[in-house]
Nucleic acid binder design. Structure first.
Lengths: 332, 332
DNA sequence: CTGTAATATGTAACCGGTTACACACATAAT
DNA sequence: ATTATGTGTGTAACCGGTTACATATTACAG
């Protein structure tokens, strides 16, 4: 690998001049510039980013913490972050934390040693005091951490309410909820949104709430139990698509006819919801958009640290597919 | 952030001694070592990896190139690579290439400027001469690039043959294939494996081969056309699970009874194959294992560049689920 | 008691860039 | 003619580590 010295020698100038040419910085004579550019081309020279980083104290790298990229919600988010980071000249580092605080801290330290420029966190396990004293910009994505940490999220509560309202509109009279983990804010908010719509209904009972913990397996079991004990249920709102798919499957295996006898709606708007049969009606989150936006805000903070940026919240959108429909025939 | 100088000052030694303590390198008096360690602790000092990298010419980072992390095959692979990289003290960089050679080259250059220590490529678009002169260890994963580049793959051809043999064993008499892209080696090999088993059958016609290009949508269409034109087909081997799921869906929509009338087998062994109904029988690849192994080999090459390492090939394993079964009643 | 090896530590060069500063020269303003 | 300003370039310090080399002291063998 040629260094800046090699270029300087070939172009018969000092390294400072080469640096000026590369960075379009300070005065350089037109002839000199040409000589340097030719030398750069001739040697196929590329500046060493490590040396640059050392001097600047910036690495042009940002990291994304996610619980587990194998959860199909995160690839899209990761993709958005990577694309956007690249667009601004940043390298993207993916960190799977498994919701394990120790792993988070280990990553945090490793990244700080590499002078990472900024971090995007999808976390419900990080402690506020663990990131408060860090002088690297941090943004919470998908899940809020606390009010001091800027976040980009979607309005889960409202989205959940919308989902339940839609089920009502299509004629559902007994709507249950397969909830996510109790310690994940998005899951809590979706549960709240559900409750907002059903709590005052005379048919409502807390027994209509079952925990699937955002997993395929647990949601399947939860649904089996729910529907065996409550065959009167005619609508289920699953807190994410992964569980929605399980609901579909469990219900079908119990002989329920979807959507004629039972409507199912998920949450997230993942591709997954298109490959089942029937396809799964869902509340689509602007996943790519929030990932992209988080990076934009983060980079704004990185490159313009005095500028005050603010948290943003996005809306979900109803995406009607085959697992729900207008059910005129059930009119009581 | 404290530097090595701050530690040296506090411990009343030179920076060289601090460095020796940190790296367990050279002679250090027991008392001195203690003083230094206390100073490190007191200042919560962490060495700057950038400075280290600059001197050593190594970054302790490895990259993984994949076409698109949103394709559900890759998260597991990425996870394996990340876990294993971490285990050996390397940071993991994920690069989505979209099978776009320009993106690959752009990433390659960016990474070389960051003195990346090694690269794992899942690619069918990279040109051999584009990586031949690079003096950074490179390993091909999942797809071979050429015989000079060490690779970790699975035996796709044999796995495909096994899949077709299994369909035969369960009684299928007319077996079709939904193939992957013509320019992807794994897809080509799976097609070959299919042909190995059916080419000499008197019922075989090339019209039983349709291209789904590893995508949900195209596989759906291909299956619809195939089954409409050839209702006699009683077994379909899809070149990956993503397409297998589409086959399932298209066949069901056409009124085929699976598995009684039509058996379907996929390839990959993704979680996806468990959430459909019926669940999808598949040839499970040791995805995590090959990802892990690729990193191990790569790191061996990085840390011990003279050692000769060799390509490795793994076997797939039949994972029987609900989309196939012994069909005694169809005995002719 | 002397020579050699092991222990202990500091100084400074080095990795490959960036940039403050000095200096030279040309041009424009007074 | 003198001074201020703009242009062009090189020298060297700096970023924060690592390590070759020099030097000093101690331990031990002959």
């Amino acid at each position: 690998m040629p260094t800046i010295k090699d270029v300087a020698k070939l172009a018969e100038v000092s390294v400072a001049t080469v640096s000026r040419v590369m960075n379009n910085n300070g005065y350089v004579n037109q002839n000199t510039r040409q000589r340097v550019e030719e030398a750069i081309k001739q040697l196929n020279y590329r500046p060493n980013d490590v040396a640059r980083s050392l001097f600047k104290g910036k690495s042009k790298m940002i990291a994304l913490f996610v619980p587990d990229i194998m959860n199909p919600f995160f690839p899209q988010l990761a993709r958005a972050v990577e694309d956007t980071a690249n667009k601004y000249g940043y390298l993207f580092v993916l960190c799977n934390t498994d919701n394990d605080n120790e792993k988070e801290i280990a990553y945090l330290n490793a990244l700080l040693q590499k002078t990472i420029d900024g971090i995007i966190l999808v976390s419900n396990t990080i402690q506020v005091d663990q990131i408060n004293d860090i002088n690297v910009p941090i943004i919470a994505l998908d899940r809020k951490i606390n009010s001091n940490i800027i976040s980009v999220t979607v309005n889960n509560r409202e989205g959940a309410s919308q989902a339940v309202r839609y089920l009502k509109e299509t004629g559902c009279k007994r709507i249950a909820h397969i909830a996510g983990p109790k310690d994940v804010s998005s899951a809590k908010q979706r549960l709240e949104g559900y409750l907002d719509e059903v709590q005052s209904e005379e048919w409502f009972t807390t027994d209509y709430i079952r925990y699937g913990n955002y997993t395929v397996k647990e949601a399947y079991q939860a649904t089996e139990e729910l529907l065996s004990q409550h065959p009167e249920i005619d609508g289920i709102f699953a807190a994410n698509d992964l569980m929605g798919v399980s609901v579909l499957k469990a219900a079908k295996n119990l002989g329920f006819d979807i959507p004629n006898q039972l409507s199912v709606i998920g949450y997230d708007g993942m591709e997954l919801s298109d490959i089942t049969s029937p396809t799964l009606t869902t509340m689509a989150q602007p996943i790519y958009d929030i990932g992209k936006r988080a990076v934009e805000i983060l980079i704004e903070k990185i490159e313009n640290s005095d500028k005050e940026v603010e948290s943003e919240q996005y809306q979900v959108q109803l995406s009607v597919k085959e697992s729900t429909h207008e059910r005129r025939e059930v009119d009581e």
